[in-house]
Design a protein around this nucleic acid. Structure first.
Lengths: 207, 207
DNA sequence: GTCGATTTTGACCGAATGGTCAGAAGAAGT
DNA sequence: ACTTCTTCTGACCATTCGGTCAAAATCGAC
């Protein structure tokens, strides 16, 4: 066996694979797939380029592994939305979980954004498959809540889109937000959490 | 004069410069600055690469001209927000204008998104200058409306951010939205317009 | 149709890109 | 200390990148 790609076995493999993935996340999320270079990633990981290619077969390989690792985490908050819970509380909790993801994993958010911006060629299958299934399912739950009068009568798909948009915005457009909220040391997340909580509470409250 | 860069004079210059900018917008907005290549742009414009470089001095030149042309249009809707108008009506109109921009100029939106995602190195000055000034100004207006009890008491900056996020999402994440709203021929914009109108109407209504 | 200016092209350049490979260096068990 | 497997490296390769240049083709005013 020449390539340790199947699963990481030794401690060195563990450590270096992780360093590569971490460095690649940094670089891919900043420059997109085509804009990132192996030399950049290798340097950020503290390895030589050939050594990097000892652990991964190709640039696409690294990118694919990052995306695969991302998607599970990314969809978790929506999965946790409980059909049996309190409707408004569930959605408010979902918004907060998604916002925390933006705060704690901004690079993952930007990697995802980069991929979608470029037409999502490498994850089209997952989007049309697992993601669509999950979204359709939760949309049906939300629609049920609306029909039952437990929340206001809104379109569940656009609700989900707007939650994605508002929460991910704080990770993806972080540069812009930082430049506008100027005063250094200002953390936008507490304010964002309060604002979004109010936004969706008011939206969902039945008239 | 060797380079016709100052302003376009002949009909050929007009036509080709426009074709180049249009092709470049397409390519840059899809792949980002580093991911785009001059060959791609030249081919999309129907010109040879050296011919392309006869009209623009460099790749950065093309990109800079696109961004400069973009920003004015992009900030117009916020500029039109009238301090003397009806507060809720003004903000609802702003949301709709911004959404129309996403519908009619999705490539411009993605170009901008790409730039911000990569840390906005090439437009930092504008963002910290004109944009911040404009946003600060309109935020003060909105805060005034809130203090006067004409709209609910919300943070004006996060309101603006959320409007940017929700409206631009329909352009920037168009690929994802299309894959989830599956049924071909579905135009998400009418639904989005209705949803966002409701979202912000409810938010702004004073309790 | 002539002639000068504009426009276009093919051939080319140095640097950077993703990737290969043979072999050196290091780890680990015996 | 010897052997074996793993890890790492330098030298190298084909291709693509942004960009140049001299010369050819085309245009437009007269």
């Amino acid at each position: 066996m020449n390539k340790p790609d199947g699963r990481r076995r030794t401690r060195i493999q563990q450590k270096n694979s992780q360093a590569i993935l971490d460095a690649a996340l940094e670089v891919f999320s900043s420059y997109g797939f085509r804009g990132a270079t192996l030399d950049q990633i290798a340097q950020a990981a503290g390895l030589s380029k050939p050594n990097l290619l000892y652990y991964f077969d190709s640039k696409e390989d690294i990118h694919a592994e990052l995306l695969a690792g991302l998607l599970d985490t990314w969809l978790d908050p929506l999965r946790e939305l409980d059909p049996a819970g309190d409707p408004i509380g569930e959605i408010r909790a979902y918004v907060q979980r998604k916002l925390e993801l933006s705060r704690d994993y901004p690079r993952e958010s930007r990697l995802f954004a980069n991929e979608i911006l470029q037409g999502a060629p490498r994850i089209e299958a997952v989007l049309r498959g697992d993601l669509k299934t999950l979204v359709d399912d939760r949309a049906a739950v939300i629609r049920g809540w609306a029909r039952a009068g437990k929340i206001a009568n809104i379109d569940p798909y656009h609700l989900i889109f707007s939650i994605w948009a508002t929460t991910q915005h704080y990770a993806d457009f972080d540069a812009q937000i930082g430049m506008i909220l100027d005063e250094p040391g200002t953390d936008p997340f507490p304010g964002a959490a309060a604002f979004l909580d109010l936004l969706y509470t008011k939206l969902l409250r039945p008239d």
